[in-house]
Amino acid sequence: MSIPNWKPLFLLAVVIAVGCAIPFMVRAYTIEIFILFMINLILVCSYRIPATTGDWSLSHVVLMGVGAYTTALLSKWFDLTIFLTVPLSAVVAGIVGFIMVTPLIRTRGFGFFIASFALGELIRLIWIKFRYPFGGPRGMIGIPNGELGSIDFFEPMPYYYFVMAVALICLIIMYRIDQSRIGKTFTALYTDEGLAESVGIDVPRYRALAFGLGAFFAGIAGALLAHRLGAVDPKNFDVTTMVYLIIWIVVGGTTTFWGPIMGLILMTFIFEWSRPLLEWRPLLFGGTLIFFLVFLPGGLDDLFFKIRNKIMARKSGAGVSDVAS
């Protein structure tokens, strides 16, 4: 038990090594793709946190937008450094998430899904309505890219490393949450709400916690995005963007921590490869979403799980049936 598990540490080292090497092997344009990919990585993993309690929301990209707008306001008005705007945006998004989820807790399933959409849309309409301070329908521009001493994050390479560091920290924390008692409580209360209550788990509180944590990390993703784009636009956080996030999640599945990551990797590849298709691309994505929901409702995650079980069953042969009886 006390022997440190070297396998994940080794894996982590490989990921870091590859991650550090990538900018030297690709063009500047591809570095931008990787930056966006890592921001999306934080976003998909953060979406999975409330999803494990059964709360699929339609407001997650709006909460990302809360992070982005907070960053825009903080860095434009108060000249805060990127090292402050990112964590503060996360906190603000987390608080907004908590406020939003307080009434939402009363709903479940489909009701939660569309009620979260309504509240998210309300926030988005506030950005559109109030030109001051949110910039109205066209959003805000001129957000500084951030800097560390003399290193300007406008250059893709330094920003790449910055985002990589933030993404790694976020993912490690989210992984620890998933593996911890809290993460297991999330899945447990989804499996059997009544049983969870009966052993003293305050289900509404934990659902709120999951939603708040998801919002916190979505806020980080939003802050990183705002600094990169230098602008925020209410259209970036509308339901179309939300559907793309849902596609990543549905394709990947939510059973394990790795599901949404797999979904994002696959869909990012498809997104980049399908560039020649131009305007036909949404059709490909819509078709993929329908395909997975109809034929592979558990996503890639579930598919791998089933394949692994089949291989294991074949390997151990009769041994498995003995245990089952």
Partner: peptide, 13 residues
């Protein structure tokens, strides 16, 4: 229910 459980009154199903 969770508060009642914490008070020491636990149910089964």
């Amino acid at each position: 229910p969770s508060h009642i459980a914490l008070a020491g009154l636990v149910r089964t199903f």
